[in-house]
């Protein structure tokens, strides 16, 4: 067995726009978050009071990261951009409930995950597919694997079945624990572990082609 070469999906430092601070600020609840910068705190306060320019700055800071989450969770670029809008509209409406106990990014991230999962619930087809995912580890991929000897990791993630993809993204990309994923998806942590392992094996298979 050859060792998997990950050419094409190891991150290019020049494209790696996620700063360390950003990554931590948007981490799930299980990751400790530092205090928000003063400027962000001021923007949050101003936006809560109705200042749209301040809220726009928050969008500029966090929008791309929210989009990445939505895109990877749904594997649908158009839907992901719709969801980003939904996330920020919801965040605007709920800003009054942000108490600053967690980083703003963490709070926003949770809003985004809930919106993505809510959209899934509204989609009967996807819901049925998820049930199948939970029941059978042999379910076919949600999308055909792209042509090519080697897929990059993003494309391989997009090719995963919906249930496995969501868990892989939440755990391995976003850093959620199995317990947190279980709470979000209404499954056991054991089910989350099984789906994650399956997702990794499917990714390996896709990347080895």
């Amino acid at each position: 067995m050859h060792s998997l070469t990950v050419t094409g999906f190891l991150p290019d430092p020049s494209l790696h726009t996620r700063s360390t601070a950003h990554a931590v600020a948007l981490a799930p609840a299980s990751v400790a978050a530092p205090e928000a910068p003063d400027a962000e705190r001021e923007d949050i306060a101003a936006a809560t009071a109705g200042d749209r320019r301040a809220f726009e700055r928050l969008y500029r800071s966090h929008g791309q990261r929210v989009f990445a989450l939505c895109l990877r969770m749904t594997a649908d670029r158009v839907l992901a951009e719709e969801l980003v809008q939904d996330v920020f509209v919801r965040a605007w409406q709920k800003l009054g409930s942000f108490r600053g106990d967690a980083a703003f990014g963490t709070w926003l991230h949770r809003v985004a995950v809930n919106i993505v999962l809510s959209r899934r619930k509204h989609d009967g087809t996807q819901r049925d597919r998820t049930v199948q995912d939970e029941q059978s580890l042999d379910a076919a991929p949600a999308q055909p694997v792209s042509v090519g000897d080697r897929l990059d990791l993003e494309a391989a993630i997009a090719s995963l079945p919906n249930g496995a993809r969501r868990i892989f993204v939440l755990h391995d990309v976003e850093g959620y624990t199995h317990e947190e994923i279980g709470d979000l998806l209404g499954i056991t942590s054991g089910g989350s572990k099984a789906q994650l392992h399956r997702a990794r094996l499917l990714l390996r298979e896709a990347l080895s082609r």
Binding site: T17, L71, E81, F88, L153, D172, V173
Partner: peptide
């Protein structure tokens, strides 16, 4: 390798400004 790469994926770009 997959796990390591997944944790440091670059952010994809949106097709347009959604603001």
């Amino acid at each position: 390798a997959i796990v390591t790469s997944a944790s440091s994926l670059p952010l994809p770009a949106m097709s347009r400004d959604l603001w």
